[in-house]
Amino acid sequence: MPIPAPNLTPAFNILRLSHVELIVTDLAKSRAFYVDTLGLQVTDEDSQTIYLRAMEERGHHCLVLKKGDTPQARDLSFKLFDEEHLERAEHFFREKGHPTEWVERPYQSRTFRTRDPHGIPLEFHARMDRLPPIHQQYKLYNGVKPLRIDHFNCFTPDVDASVAFYNQLGFRVTEYTEDEESKRLWAAWMHRKGGVHDMAFTNGTGPRLHHTAFWVPTPLNIIDLLDLMATTGWVKNIERGPGRHGISNAFFLYIRDPDGHRTEIYCSDYQTVDPDLEPIKWDLKDPQRQTLWGAPAPRSWFEEGSLFEGAEPIASTLAATPIVAP
């Protein structure tokens, strides 16, 4: 299917992704991973929840870890322009028959929850409590020195349908992979904030969260993290990389937390703010699409992901397969 034309006047204005909540089974182990190893900053915590932010962020949190019995992903959260656009968003989803509910969230203004057509739980708000800047408190920079949350990537059973829906929300495609035989999309990268993506969609059993990504200053920070993980008991949590993607041009590393939730450490993609920027097309069989250089992705990277709470995954009908490491 053809990539839809950019929708420059959506019903409401999504500024960027905001945060994600993950259910973890052992809060202490998760804290050791995300705080002591990756270097995210704790903004609040108790016996059930840890709120975290990265070094450049002024909002209260970009990641929420919630203790639970079963590892899952909860809402993918997005920040809107203002309260008027929040009302517009709720009206948009309600008019299209999606479930909507207003919820109370700590450190956020009015917030509503809904789901996309495949069941991905979404959350929207216009304001979050602001914290003092810490980006020049260099004594706090630890681990991989994460600067900000960058994007989500989700498995979906129908990439074409996901792209068509998020196009209605104003997301614009920057790059995509097409199966030449069926002419269907195998993956697509879509943005709001002017990078390569805030949301990406990958063909597969879904909906499931493939990964959450954090932007870091340089590739050397990723090398430092690998040295740290290799000498502090986390070497088996390194899943893929380091390497450079063809798509996005980003230097990357994929790691897994104690419950298997996947994190991408990410830097050096490019600016996409021009509204007439043409999407870049890749052939599914092009090996440099996923890895410009570096080892091919392992099978786990294509098959494993975090279940979304309350969403029942279904299999994709697109049987095309990319190159998989032996």
Score class of each variant (00 low, 15 high):
Ile3Tyr: 07
Ala5Phe: 05
Pro6His: 03
Leu8Ser: 11
Leu8Gly: 05
Thr9Val: 08
Ala11Asp: 08
Ile14Trp: 03
His19Leu: 05
Glu21Tyr: 14
Ala32Asn: 11
Asp36Thr: 05
Asp36Leu: 02
Leu40Ile: 15
Asp44Trp: 11
Ser47Gln: 06
Ala54Ser: 07
Ala54Glu: 08
Glu56Phe: 15
Glu57Phe: 01
Gly59Pro: 06
Leu63Gln: 12
Leu63Trp: 14
Thr70Ile: 08
Ala73Met: 10
Phe78Ala: 12
Pro99Ala: 00
Pro99His: 01
Glu101Ser: 09
Pro106Lys: 10
Ser109Trp: 07
Thr111His: 00
Phe112Val: 00
His118Val: 10
Ile120Leu: 06
Glu123Arg: 08
Met128Asp: 01
Met128Asn: 04
His135Arg: 11
His135Met: 04
Gly143Asn: 05
Arg148Asp: 08
Ile149Lys: 09
Ile149Glu: 10
Phe152Lys: 13
Asp160Trp: 03
Gln168Asp: 11
Asp179Ser: 15
Ser182Trp: 07
Trp189Val: 04
Met190Arg: 09
Arg192Gly: 04
Val196Arg: 10
Val196Ala: 14
His197Trp: 06
Asn203Tyr: 11
Gly206Leu: 12
Gly206Pro: 07
Thr212Gln: 13
Thr218Pro: 14
Leu220Gln: 07
Val235Ile: 03
Arg240His: 15
Arg244Phe: 03
Arg244Glu: 05
Arg244Ser: 06
Gly246Met: 10
Ile255Ser: 06
Gly260His: 04
Arg262Ile: 06
Tyr266Leu: 01
Asp269Glu: 14
Asp269Gly: 13
Asp276Phe: 06
Ile280His: 14
Asp286Cys: 03
Pro287Phe: 13
Pro287Arg: 15
Gln288Tyr: 14
Thr291Cys: 08
Arg299Gln: 13
Phe302Tyr: 14
Glu303Leu: 00
Phe308Thr: 13
Gly310Asp: 12
Glu312Gly: 13
Thr317Gly: 02
Ala319Arg: 12
Ala320His: 05
